[in-house]
């Protein structure tokens, strides 16, 4: 992959790049389908149910059938909606979600763009999705949708701050914003979950809030806002919003694996297992945690949510940055 990026432009290279993009899209789509299946199954087991078990063996084709249903459904645009914004909002929400995957290294050789400011790119692009969500809520011309959209923006802007700040500890330790360098630093030393445990916890909580998932699912809040910002959407456009949500799970868990769990680094010297497998294992552990938290915690209230971000997480994240800087300065001086 790396040598491909540095070669001069040719049509063959373009075809290879485009097909690589298509392959990633396929991987992401399959991940999303089976993440939803896995989520329903795991939450079902946790609630002493069986989960989907009708379509195909063990219900494996349930989500495939759901996606197919969404594809062939009518694409309804409400009469009083802002038609143009309504139509492009899902695209605005999904494109950054997919673009984020470009900078995530999955193993030593499998990565798509070796960007020097990979983490910054992640933080910047994940904020753009909020625009799509707000536009979708506003253009629907529906009270529930606009309330969901407003809540979503307030929440995501607030939690973006501690999320980015929790990066800073890792960046200070590594001296680089490049995700490959961060993994290389962890391969030499220890995984950053140990020195940056506070940062990891802040990332986990703020990331959960960024994903708009339970216990931070106020924007969707099924039982009070129906479905939040995408209440008026149907068919394919609804699928796009759902897709961007689950692609963010993919992206966030991958970034967390890279930054705190050592990426493809094998623990205990078990290097005979390929790095990609280790990456997938750590990644699935984090995805499982998200589902586990969803099955456990009740939804927080709005004032608790905002207070928690500004009064607890941001001071803690700042404290983490200060302590990390202090230790780094002392260790370099000594």
């Amino acid at each position: 992959m790396a040598e491909l990026l540095s070669q001069p432009f040719s049509w063959l290279n373009l075809i290879i790049m485009v097909s690589a993009g298509v392959v990633v899209l396929g991987v992401v789509l399959v991940f999303v389908m089976y993440a939803i299946y896995f989520e329903r199954k795991v939450i079902g087991w946790m609630q002493l149910r069986n989960g989907p078990n009708r379509v195909g063996p063990w219900g494996l084709f349930q989500t495939v059938a759901d996606v197919l249903k969404l594809m062939i459904k009518e694409d309804i645009v409400p009469a009083k909606a802002d038609r143009f914004l309504f139509l492009i909002a899902p695209i605005i929400a999904y494109t950054p979600a997919f673009a984020i995957i470009a900078v995530i290294p999955f193993s030593e050789n499998v990565f798509f763009a070796d960007v020097n400011v990979g983490i910054l790119y992640y933080g910047a692009l994940s904020s753009i999705s909020i625009t799509g969500i707000l536009l979708g809520g506003w253009a629907s011309n529906n009270k529930y949708a606009i309330m969901g959209g407003m809540r979503s923006v307030a929440q995501m802007v607030s939690y973006e701050v501690p999320l980015i700040m929790s990066f800073l500890g890792v960046v200070l330790l590594t001296g680089s914003l490049n995700m490959k360098d961060i993994v290389a630093a962890q391969q030499d030393g220890m995984w950053f979950i140990i020195p940056q445990f506070l940062g990891f916890v802040i990332f986990l909580i703020a990331g959960n809030a960024e994903l708009n998932r339970t216990p931070f699912d106020l924007p969707e809040a099924e039982n009070e806002l129906v479905a939040g910002y995408f209440v008026e959407y149907s068919g394919f456009r609804f699928a796009f919003f759902m897709l961007s949500e689950y692609v963010y799970i993919f992206a966030l868990s991958s970034v967390m694996t890279v930054m705190f769990l050592g990426g493809w680094d094998a623990p205990f010297g078990l290097t005979f297992i390929p790095g990609g497998v280790w990456f997938a294992l750590k990644f699935l552990l984090l995805v499982f945690y998200l589902f586990w938290a969803r099955a456990t915690f009740p939804r927080v209230k709005t004032q608790q949510l905002m207070g928690f971000a500004w009064k607890v997480l941001i001071p803690l994240a700042l404290f983490n940055v200060m302590i990390t800087a202090l230790f780094k300065t002392i260790s370099q001086a000594g």
């Binding site: 609630q47 002493l48 149910r49 069986n50 586990w292 456990t296 915690f297």
Partner: peptide, 22 residues
Amino acid sequence: GFFKGLGFILKQLKEKKITSQY
């Protein structure tokens, strides 16, 4: 309480299902 809740929920994974396969 967070850890208590998470631990309790994790233990439910191996519990017997209460639904009937009607």
